[in-house]
Amino acid sequence: MAQAPVLPRGFELPLEPRLPRIGSVDAVALEERAASLAKRSIKREAKVFALELAIRMIDLTTLEGQDTPGKVAALASKAIRPDPTHADIPSVAAVCVYPNLVPTAVARVRETGVKVASVATAFPSGQSPLDAKLEEVRWVVEQGADEVDMVIDRGAFLSGRYAKVYDEIVRVKDASSSAHLKVILEVAELGTYDNVRRASLLAMAAGADFIKTSTGKLPGAATLPVTLCMLEAIRDVYEETGRMVGMKPAGGIRQAKQAVQYLVQLHETLGVEWLTPDLYRIGASSLLNDVLMQLRKERTGVYQSGDYFTLD
């Protein structure tokens, strides 16, 4: 069983003034900074750039009890070619589905460049035995999922059993072998930005390729301040270790305008190096059509009715 390193005779103390320190987050100032970045005015070619980038970063998601192979197949087709009337509109990054629907999604997106992401580890609550979670992870990877979106054990985290959370992420990382691991913190359940920062650092230390805000199953999912808080943790890890960890806000991003705000925040916090779907994803479903509508408006100068965009 993987574990945090055990130190002989004693406990670990930070002996250098190094980053990342767990430290703390000032909520008022964090929210102020996020609000000020959200006021950037992104126009014309800069806006088109952001909208196209946003499409390439979308994890097009359906996570419902009522999901069927037919629904997932339709979603996958939309992911590959979001706007059939404009072939130059890029594909989204991935489709994100429940484990049972991975085979359908994989069959549909084969050799298109679109990835399949699967939630796992008893999503969304994570309240299952570790072995069951690991088995689920192995299964989705065997079925061809390229990416695994796991949830952390919030019960363990909130009761201070950080080693358990850490340990579980290490085990899941191991079980997901070559698949990309996104670790969902479910920020709405963590309660404070201090906790969000702590959980972000914990997940990155345990090997997360991405950290992700939310399951999308709770109100109060991704927000600009909470995403900024996570980006700052990513920045500290990068500054100290050179390791580039990805970020995925998910839940509540429905409008193109919001997507642009998230990208501005990313750009001005982590820099242009992070403006790639390798390092940033937006978990969303209805966002895509709004971005398509805005792009068409930028091209033609007029808004078109919703009937001109497919509902999948």
Binding site: R40, S41, I42, A46, R243, V272, T276, D278
Partner: peptide, 23 residues
């Protein structure tokens, strides 16, 4: 860098993102 350090996927980041004037 080890394989942990480099993001996988190989979609290059753009060189810059210049904001258009917004007077």
């Amino acid at each position: 860098m080890t394989d942990l350090e480099r993001p996988r996927g190989g979609v290059p980041a753009p060189k810059d993102w210049t904001y258009a004037p917004a007077p």
